[in-house]
Amino acid sequence: MNLLALEPERLLGAVRALLAAKGIASPAEIAERIAATDAASPAQGARMVAIAWTDPEFRALMLADGTRAAESLAIPMRGAPPLGVLENTPDLHHLVVCTLCSCYPRAVLGYPPFWYKSAAYRARAVRDPRGLIAEWGTTLPPATKIRVVDSTADYRWMVLPLRPAGTENWPADRLATLVRETDMIGVTLVATPGDHALNSFASPRPQA
């Protein structure tokens, strides 16, 4: 006998009524959290990246305090762990992993892609980061060092990728269309416009 399987709606109703009756969470608060979870997607992170590329003041805020930067764009961050933003430069590339479980900046990137939680990704990201990103078609110049960020505790991390060449006069909303979740995890680089065929894992599925 499994109450959850037999009468899930009744059970959920009872739990909600108890949460409200005990003053733990009101129906409005639950609705707000559901809406925030539904709204979270890589598009939120992409919007932050694109604005950071075009607005130096926002960029500085985002690097200093990712949570406040997200909130300034009306992205709900209440209850989420602090957001840290890792700035890629020509000399330094960041790759995010959670070797212990699946810590992921869900508030700004949504649900993690399935491979992010795989044992293979988690093990290889720290052990063979260059080999791993090569399977995504990503090759870094030899002088660029990789910093693997193992998300183990109370922060959540996203990458601020390098802005691709050939986008000098683009507005932020157009730039945002270039940025994929894989770019903000660090397994790929934001592709130069027109070059997507060379690095086209827009749907996150690495080569075998």
Partner: peptide
Amino acid sequence: VLFDQPPLWEEGSPGDEVLVEIY
């Protein structure tokens, strides 16, 4: 806390790093 990556596994590229939150 920042660690050199190659010594952790005795493989990898010199200069690469691992950055981890530690209490």
